[in-house]
């Protein structure tokens, strides 16, 4: 069985301008969403308290909000989490001094007293302001360092045009994924950040496989413009690209539907990232290399190039 005909000759590069326009529009939307709507940052980054409660009966959100307002937390956000019996209470950083970590104890005590039957404390996440700030900084740093490390590796293993191309593709993927979270205002927490970094890993994997074939074909195929050679390479790797994306998407769908509420954002970020990553390894990464003017001479193994250069 085959996903696609083994001898495809799609002219991918012919449509690169369409792709560039498409990517441009998507990128503008993503950046616009990030600038104007901003990310809906989770407690991990903003600091604050998050309490997940399990009720025996479907929970009355209005009553919970009223109870919280009575003890002075009118700005607490109360919502259902997964099932109607699970409730998530989010509270911003308390202003002023005082023991911030005591807040969850108090809220849990008051809310359990407010209903008949037992309330279960399923989860508490309290993040102090300085920790939230650090987690944000570390997160941004991790993305940056990962990009630089990858850039250097690809530059050494391939050539600078490929390094630039792969990083352009990565930035493209990260921006679009994060942009979607901003656009839909889905909560962005630490697991989602991990997913974004995994997207970097995945998208890179995809891009490298394509580049590897491009390099091989530049060396092997004597005739043909760079555009034709890249097209051939994309066709050669198309079966693999689709197959791997498909298997990865399958497991991510399993994670998305079966992994539970906490992992939802994580799975969503990866699903989106893998789709974008597959597209970008074909269009963004390859187009970049073409735009940067890669040629046969750039990719010949160094020793052979020396021999050619020595002759007058």
């Amino acid at each position: 069985m085959q996903l696609i005909n083994s001898k495809t000759t799609f002219n991918f590069m012919d449509k690169r301008y369409v792709a560039m326009v498409l990517s441009g529009i998507l990128l503008l939307t993503a950046i616009g969403a990030l600038v104007f709507r901003g990310l809906n940052l989770g407690v991990d980054f903003t600091g604050g308290t998050l309490i997940e409660l399990g009720y025996e009966q479907p929970a009355d959100l209005v009553a919970i909000r009223t109870t919280l307002r009575e003890i002075g937390y009118a700005d607490a956000s109360v919502q259902q989490f997964g099932t109607s019996r699970d409730v998530l209470v989010r509270m911003a950083q308390l202003s002023g001094e005082g023991n911030q970590s005591e807040l969850s104890n108090q809220v849990f005590r008051v809310l359990s007293a407010a209903v008949d039957g037992a309330v279960e404390l399923r989860r508490v996440e309290f993040v102090g302001p300085q920790v939230g700030e650090e987690l944000s900084e570390d997160g941004a740093l991790a993305v940056l360092v990962a990009l630089i490390a990858i850039l250097s590796y690809v530059a050494v293993r391939f050539e600078w045009r490929f390094a630039v191309g792969s990083v352009v593709a990565l930035v493209h993927d990260v921006l679009l994924t994060v942009g979607l979270f901003a656009l839909l205002q889905i909560e962005f927490d630490l697991p989602v950040l991990a997913a974004v970094l995994a997207v970097i890993g995945y998208s890179l994997n995809d891009t490298i496989v394509v580049y590897d074939r491009v390099r091989e074909n530049f060396r092997k195929i004597r005739k043909g413009t760079p555009e034709q050679i890249i097209n051939t390479s994309l066709n050669h790797t198309l079966g693999r690209t689709l197959m791997t994306s498909l298997t990865t998407l399958l497991v991510l769908l399993a994670l998305f539907f079966l992994g539970g509420e906490i992992i939802h954002g994580f799975a969503l970020a990866l699903l989106v990232g893998v789709l974008i990553g597959t597209y970008s390894s074909i269009y963004v990464a390859s187009t970049s290399v073409l735009v940067l003017g890669v040629s046969k001479a750039d990719l010949m193994p160094p020793q052979k190039a020396d021999v050619v250069d020595d002759r007058p």
Binding site: E52, G54, N99, Q100, S101, S104, E120, L121, R122, R123, V124, E125, F126, V127, G128, Q130, V131, L250, V251, L252, A254, L255, F257, L258, G259, G260, I262, I263
Partner: peptide, 28 residues
């Protein structure tokens, strides 16, 4: 001063194990 706290109740932990296991199996 306590500057970060993450508490996971036992039932949520078990839920996480079950869901994690289910998704690994389904994906596999």
């Amino acid at each position: 001063e306590i500057i970060e706290e993450r508490t996971i109740g036992p039932s949520l932990g078990q839920d996480n194990i079950d869901q994690g296991f289910a998704s690994v199996m389904a994906g596999l």
